[in-house]
């Protein structure tokens, strides 16, 4: 064997040859060259965008968090050490916002994931008209959150549709968004309604990867509906579950649009969230440095929660 690997029309190297090459050499055989160049070109636009819109802003946030930068100011930012963080942890509004954000996430994750799964199970059947329902459930997802928020703001009015509906049953509905006790719940319900369709589709894709053979095997063994779900569907959805859990959690932590449109954090801070405060402090109060510190804390919080979730839902079979 004297042929050179990587000639114009190379024959594949033999197993012997390959075993003689280092890993690095194997990666750079000429047949891969053009692929690598193409890959580089393909990656570049995305990498540049990530750099400009994600990485640089994150690095800037890390730096600005330790300065007294202002949005509008004739003087440049000065380093102030941990002042912003000291101020943050002494700010009652920060703790209220943190509490609201955590509460929202705590409830929205199981409720939204649960409803989405129920919907997915319901429409994962072969009957006429199922596409109609799929579209129907998905409709809120493709509607802008701002539009949805504006509509629900009207629904939640003291004399709005929801209270008029309740009045039919003799229930005197509260001023949903104007009452500190109900405002966060009202926003939670609306958010679930808007987001549930998206996660329904994800669940559905998970459901459709489950082989029918397993259900047939289950049927032969005499499994009932609940047993089929408990011992076939649920274990088979593990990967989907992890994905859904993490995406809903991150989405819940980033709660902002609904708050901005519907309540502006009120009444009495009952719907103020971390991201809403970051935007308010950064733009309305023009305190870029302080807002960066808040964003940094938020970043660490989301990172920590995601890591914990990832650990709890890790693939325990890998080590086998």
């Amino acid at each position: 064997m004297t042929q050179t690997i990587g000639a114009a029309h190379p024959e594949p190297p033999t197993v012997d040859q390959l075993e003689n090459l280092t890993f690095r050499q194997r990666r750079f055989t000429k047949s891969k060259q053009s692929q690598r160049i193409a890959a580089a070109w393909l990656v570049t636009p995305a990498a540049a965008l990530l750099l400009v819109f994600i990485i640089i802003p994150i690095v800037l946030t890390f730096v600005l968090a330790f300065t007294n930068a202002k949005l509008i100011s004739p003087t440049g930012p000065q380093f102030v050490g941990f002042d912003n963080f000291a101020r943050l942890f002494n700010d009652p509004l920060f703790w209220k916002s943190l509490r609201n954000t955590l509460l929202f996430a705590l409830f929205v994750v199981p409720i939204q994931a649960g409803f989405a799964l129920v919907l997915a199970l319901l429409i994962n059947v072969k009957i006429r008209g199922v596409n109609f329902f799929r579209t129907l459930y998905f409709l809120p997802v493709v509607t802008s959150m701002v539009v949805v928020s504006l509509l629900w703001k009207l629904l939640y009015q003291p004399n709005g549709l929801i209270n008029n509906f309740l009045a039919v049953f003799g229930i005197d509905g509260p001023d949903w968004l104007g009452n500190p006790n109900t405002a966060l719940i009202a926003i939670l319900v609306m958010s679930v309604w808007q987001g549930v369709g998206f996660h329904m589709v994800i669940w559905l894709s998970g459901l459709q990867t489950i082989s029918q053979d397993m259900y047939e095997a289950g049927a032969i063994d005499g499994a009932g509906n609940w047993q089929r779900f408990r011992y076939i569907t649920w274990p088979a959805l593990r990967q989907t579950r992890t994905f859904i859990l993490i995406t809903i959690t991150i989405q819940a932590f980033a709660l902002f649009t609904q708050i901005q449109v519907m309540t502006e954090g009120g009444p009495l801070d009952s719907t103020s969230t971390i991201v809403y405060q970051a935007v308010r402090i950064g733009f309305d109060l023009q305190q870029t440095g302080y807002a960066s510190a808040l964003s940094l804390v938020f970043f660490i919080l989301v990172l920590a929660v995601s890591l914990v979730q990832r650990f709890l839902t890790r693939d325990k079979d890998v080590k086998k």
Binding site: T4, G6, N20, R24, Q25, K30
Partner: peptide, 11 residues
């Protein structure tokens, strides 16, 4: 095989 051909191509 001639290993020099297998180095990372400059291009």
């Amino acid at each position: 095989p001639d290993n020099s051909e297998l180095e990372e191509p400059p291009v």
